[in-house]
């Protein structure tokens, strides 16, 4: 197996075990105050880091490029409560257009 396939396998096993654990483990263990606080913070913390890296990183250098336009468009559309799929398409299209013309 290639390293990429190992990665895929790890994601499959890891994500499924989280789901199963919540249905199986006694509630008292999981409903601990700190555990719940951590769980509430994880999505915001990791998704924000992913937005930052996916927008500004090119390998190990920081760059300002056409992606920033797409993310800006996405932010405006989210603010206007545009649904997810049209928002994604607009972000991709605006970035592609900037690359085409500049």
């Amino acid at each position: 197996m290639t390293e990429l396939t190992w990665g895929v396998a790890l994601v499959i096993v890891g994500t499924y075990l989280w789901k199963l654990a919540g249905l199986s483990v006694p509630q008292t263990v999981l409903e601990h105050r700190v555990t719940l606080a951590i769980a509430a913070l994880i999505p915001v913390a990791f998704l924000s880091a992913l937005v930052a890296v996916q927008t500004f990183a090119d390998g190990t250098t920081l760059v300002l490029d056409a992606r920033l336009v797409g993310v800006g468009v996405a932010a405006i559309l989210l603010w206007l409560r545009v649904p997810f799929l049209p928002m994604l398409i607009a972000a991709a299209a605006s970035t592609a257009l900037v690359r085409l013309f500049f």
């Binding site: 994601v11 989280w18 789901k19 654990a21 999505p43």
Partner: peptide, 18 residues
């Protein structure tokens, strides 16, 4: 493997849904 670790950590919220 770094990618898998990130993805798995992000999946932790599903346990709290469960």
């Amino acid at each position: 493997l770094t990618a898998a670790l990130t993805a798995t950590l992000l999946g932790a919220r599903n346990m709290f849904y469960s």
